[in-house]
């Protein structure tokens, strides 16, 4: 199918983009990498009147070291995140996640900010942003505001970004000494959206867990954090017994949906499998 007709506007500055959005209101959509938006337009699942292209705005792409954090510009392509030394060094969770997103040609165009703003519950980066306590930077005509990841994802494809606003970047705290991260997903084919996946981070004293954070994706209408299960790990090492306790706790704490790929009970089971496969090796077991 072909998209319904629309007008196309290339924004040259952030202010330009914001005023175009203000002028056209609900009729306008932001075009970033287009790797989700263009597909929905081609299938006529949506038909905006105006596309505001933010690809040519200077300063929206790139990864910067801001001291304790990395600021990833919204228009940074997945493939530039994939090959970034800064990401590899300071954000190993993101480094592990990014090449699970789609395929090379899609990663060459798709953007970090687009993934976060689109907020697909099955996407990798929103879950990582939650596990890492990222901060989202959002610009509007009245200036910029910051929203912590924990308050950002509001529901199915729903975020704290208000109409007329643009996500300009995401700050990810650098991983500190003694911390480790783990990432895994189960998908039928490489590059497919995961049936379910996990993003984890914890602080270690030897092989003892502390401050563990577990976030699952495709386990609900948004990335799902499991603090009760994570708390079982704190002050403990890894053991078979622990794996069973976590699996039992995840069955209580998660309430994943049914779909064609897996039903809820299967996803609960797989959540336990992922916890075991990821957390054991993190503890060196």
């Amino acid at each position: 199918m072909k998209p319904a007709p629309f007008a196309y506007a290339k924004a040259s500055t952030l202010e330009d983009a914001l005023s175009l959005l203000a002028e056209h209101g609900d009729d306008a959509r932001i075009l970033a990498g287009g790797q989700s938006l263009m597909a929905t337009l081609n299938m006529r699942l949506s038909a905006p009147q105006v596309l505001v292209d933010i690809n040519r705005i200077d300063g929206l792409a790139g990864i910067n070291d801001t001291g304790d954090a990395l600021r990833i510009g919204a228009m940074t392509r997945h493939s530039d995140v994939e090959t970034s030394d800064l990401i590899a060094q300071h954000a190993p969770l993101i480094a592990a996640a990014v090449d699970h997103i789609a395929h090379p040609a899609i990663r060459n165009r798709g953007t970090f900010g687009g993934s976060i703003a689109f907020a697909d519950p099955a996407a990798e980066l929103p879950a990582c942003a939650m596990a890492l306590d990222a901060t989202m930077h959002i610009a509007g005509l009245n200036g910029e505001r910051d929203v912590p990841a924990a308050d950002f994802f509001e529901g199915l494809y729903e975020t704290a970004i208000q109409p007329g606003e643009i996500l300009t970047g995401v700050s990810i705290p650098k991983i500190a000494d003694g911390w480790k991260s783990g990432f895994m997903e189960l998908a039928r084919r490489r590059g497919d959206y995961a049936i379910i996946g996990i993003a984890a981070q914890a602080k270690f004293d030897g092989s003892t867990f502390g401050d563990a954070r577990l976030v699952y994706f495709n386990a609900g209408d948004r990335p799902v954090s499991t603090p009760q299960t994570a708390a079982l790990l704190n002050g403990q090492g890894w053991s078979d017994d622990m794996a069973e306790k976590l699996a039992a706790s995840l069955k209580r704490e998660l309430d994943p949906p049914d779909d064609l790929n897996a039903d809820g009970p299967m996803r609960k089971h797989l959540a336990g499998v992922l916890a075991k496969r990821v957390l054991g090796p993190m503890a060196g077991a």
């Binding site: 199918m1 196309y8 790797q35 263009m38 081609n42 299938m43 040609a105 899609i106 060459n108 165009r109």
Partner: peptide, 23 residues
């Protein structure tokens, strides 16, 4: 025409992209 099959792959500015997902 929705990014799944790769038949439309072309090279733009030195990188492969989906021709069906790029205007």
């Amino acid at each position: 025409e929705h990014g799944v099959c790769g038949a439309c792959t072309i090279r733009m500015d030195g990188r492969i992209v989906r021709g069906c997902l790029t205007l």
